[in-house]
Computed example of a mutant assay.
Amino acid sequence: MVELRVLLIGATGVFGSRLAERAAREDGIALTLAARDRAKLDALAARLGGLPVRTLDRANIAAADLAGFDVVVDAAGPFQASAPTVIEAAIASRVSYIDLADGRDFVAGIAAHDAAARAAGISITCGASSIPALSHAVLDDLTAGWSRIDRIAMGIFPGNRAPRGLAVVQAILSYVGHPVRVWRGGRWTAVPGWGMTQRWAVPGVGKRWASVCDTPEQDLLVARYRPADSAEFFAGMELSILHLGLALLALPVRWGLPRSLRPAARPLLAIARLLLPFGSDVGAMDICVGGQDAGGKATTARWTLRADGNRGPYVPTLAALAMLRRFRDGQAPEPGARACAGMLSLAEFAADFAALGITTGHDGGK
């Protein structure tokens, strides 16, 4: 078997290290780890059996850095306000590209690379993560045969003890307090980032705090499913002091002082880490949808994921892993640039959920 040569950027991060761990176990995938910190790279490589490493900064990567690889995976982030440097290097080197992007503008702009990707004969796959890859696989399964979709609401709720990285905190703080464009009441409207704060009852988990987030999901849900009424995405922190504290910090941003909380990412992350012993290690993802079945009858459906033992951070990596398997098995996407929405089936996640002890369930629908 000819092995698929994969370069994983951001390999030492919260998500990158978990993707590396899973991909390193796959037959037919030759993985090289890349990040900025050589000491962390060497430690991870040793833990995974002596994988090759490259010291790279995604902000300064060039086509020559990708020479000899079949696929490059960008798991570094943050993607908010990020330049498409890795994408441009991938096109120039004719190496296919996958990322875990959650930046709304970054994902929305992926089509701008379509013509160049086609000319280079490679695929650019953006957002191979919990959203939109897994979320759309779930919705496709729940609403198969429906005649109409009216409402979509989804939330992601990590346990407080789950590891958190600087890139994730920077991503959240980039939109806190700023206007977020959401589809409500059948039209686009603006609400404050980390606003609409509420208690969300997650089946089998309990109540968690939830606030609206700025993600590519809002745009992609409306584009793919055309809900008549609403498409909303929320996230929440388990501890009230963290979740509501961030909601309070959003108020000065809404008033214009300061312009952004992102410069405070490091001290806020330090505070969050001090509180790691509290709360639980249970993470969840909850997707609710309402509409009409094939016969025009009103119907609803719900799918819930529960990840115990701090296994939640594996979930955002599983779509990228599924995409690597497709490349390895000769089922690579057609050349072009696209968001990873509707590209994977829910069945492609099942074996990994089982291996990780992650449980899922759904009610109603179909």
Rank of each mutant, 00 (worst) to 15 (best):
A319E: 02
R25H: 05
P84K: 11
F233W: 10
R181G: 09
L244W: 14
A355F: 04
A46Q: 15
R161E: 11
A64V: 14
G16C: 02
D114R: 13
V2D: 14
A35M: 03
R151E: 11
D57R: 04
D37W: 12
R161Y: 08
A162E: 09
G103F: 05
M154R: 10
V73D: 07
L268C: 10
I149C: 07
A162C: 10
I87C: 04
V282P: 00
V182Q: 02
Y175R: 10
S280R: 01
P313D: 08
D27R: 13
S129R: 01
K40S: 06
D329M: 05
R226A: 09
V289W: 09
D140Q: 06
H243N: 04
A76N: 08
G16N: 00
L7M: 11
G357D: 05
T359Q: 15
L33Y: 00
A223Y: 07
M285A: 13
T12E: 01
R262T: 09
T143M: 04
A167K: 06
T360V: 13
A101I: 07
L100N: 10
A24P: 00
R328P: 03
D105Q: 15
I91M: 07
Q218F: 13
I124L: 03
R164Q: 12
L269A: 03
Q331F: 00
A347V: 13
V14W: 08
W303E: 00
G195F: 09
D286C: 11
F353L: 14
S211K: 09
A190N: 15
A23V: 04
T300W: 12
L276D: 12
G103A: 03
M1F: 13
H362Q: 11
T32P: 05
I9T: 07
V138T: 04
A30P: 04
V6E: 03
L321I: 06
R325Y: 01
S147G: 13
V315D: 09
E26Y: 10
F353H: 09
T143G: 05
G236R: 01
Y314F: 15
P267V: 04
E348N: 09
M237P: 14
G77C: 06
R254H: 11
G145T: 03
A117T: 09
L246Y: 04
D114Y: 04
I271M: 15
I87E: 00
F79C: 01
A46V: 08
R5M: 05
R187V: 03
A34D: 03
S123Q: 02
M343S: 12
P158T: 14
S93D: 03
R266P: 06
V169Y: 08
T12Q: 00
S240A: 15
R47V: 08
I122K: 06
V176R: 03
S260T: 14
R118D: 02
Y314D: 02
A39E: 06
S280T: 08
T197Y: 10
A119N: 11
F349Y: 12
R5T: 04
R36Y: 05
A81V: 15
T197W: 14
D308P: 03
D27E: 11
R148K: 14
F106R: 01
S17A: 11
L276I: 13
I131P: 12
D308G: 08
A101R: 02
E334Q: 15
P78I: 00
G186P: 13
